[in-house]
């Protein structure tokens, strides 16, 4: 689980460990500096994805995660690390 900003990092680290299709639950960046009610809002938004990651068939999740792109507001100058 990570913020959209760090999805690419989380995905690359998962791939480095051989977990190529690991489902990663994404919440909006940032998590630091939020008020408790904003944290609660982020958590509420993530519940559905967490339930899916834990209950949907592995093959279905693998297919979804294989080429998943998560948009971030910040431009990161790179290509996929393991391309």
């Amino acid at each position: 689980m990570c913020t959209d900003e760090f999805y690419g990092l989380g995905r690359a680290e998962a791939e480095a460990l051989g977990l190529i299709t690991l489902p990663i639950v994404v919440v909006e960046h940032p998590m630091g500096g939020l008020r408790p009610d904003e944290v609660h809002e982020r958590a509420t938004q993530a519940v559905e994805e967490i339930v899916r990651a834990l209950t949907v068939a592995r093959e279905v999740l693998a297919e979804e995660n294989r080429n998943r792109v998560v948009e971030t507001r910040r431009r990161v100058r790179d290509k996929p690390l393991f391309a």
Partner: peptide, 8 residues
């Protein structure tokens, strides 16, 4: 190690 700035 793959630790390129903005990447890993």
């Amino acid at each position: 190690g793959g630790a390129l700035p903005g990447k890993l």
